[in-house]
C-alpha cells in the first residue's frame, strides 16, 4: 500500500491535498510532502447509485473527511451507517479498474475495524 501525500507550504505552512507546488493561501512556490494519515472526521457523504460499468456494486458510499492536519480529502467509506462528525481512520486500497489499470485510492473506516 502506497501512502497518499499532501503538501505543506514552505512559506506559510498551509496544507493542501492534492499536493500543490504553488500555495493557494500565500501564492508562494515551494512545498514539502507530508503523508495523509491519522484520524479524520467525516464532513459529508453520499451513497451513489448510478455508477459506471467499472463498478459491480449496487451503490458506493463516498465522503469528504478532514484530517487533524487540516487537510481534507474525498474517499470511499467502508462504513454501513455513516454520520457527519464521526471519527474515521484511513487506508489505501483499489477503488476503480479501467481496462487493465487498477487505481488505488483512499478508504475510510471506523477506527479499529479489521481492514486497516
Amino acid at each position: 500500500m502506497t501512502a497518499f501525500t499532501a503538501s505543506v507550504c514552505r512559506s506559510c505552512g498551509a496544507v493542501a491535498y492534492p499536493p500543490r507546488r504553488r500555495c493557494r493561501a500565500c501564492g508562494k512556490t515551494g512545498s514539502d510532502p507530508v503523508p495523509l494519515e491519522g484520524k479524520a472526521t467525516l464532513v459529508t457523504f453520499t451513497r451513489v447509485y448510478n455508477l459506471s460499468l467499472a463498478f459491480e456494486e449496487r451503490y458506493i458510499t463516498v465522503g469528504i473527511v478532514e484530517f487533524q492536519s487540516g487537510a481534507r480529502a474525498l474517499g470511499r467509506l467502508a462504513v454501513d451507517e455513516p454520520e457527519i462528525g464521526m471519527e474515521l481512520s484511513c487506508y489505501v486500497a483499489p477503488v476503480r479498474t479501467v481496462g487493465y489499470e487498477t487505481y488505488e485510492g483512499l478508504w475510510f473506516e471506523r477506527p479499529g475495524s479489521p481492514a486497516a
Partner: peptide, 21 residues
C-alpha cells in the same frame, strides 16, 4: 482526476454531498 474521478464520483455525487450539508 486523482482526487475525485477515480473514486467513481459523478456530478450527482458531488451534488448529493453538498445537499446533505
Amino acid at each position: 482526476p486523482e482526487a475525485e474521478y477515480i473514486y467513481g464520483v459523478t456530478l450527482p455525487a458531488l451534488a448529493g454531498m453538498f445537499a446533505r450539508l
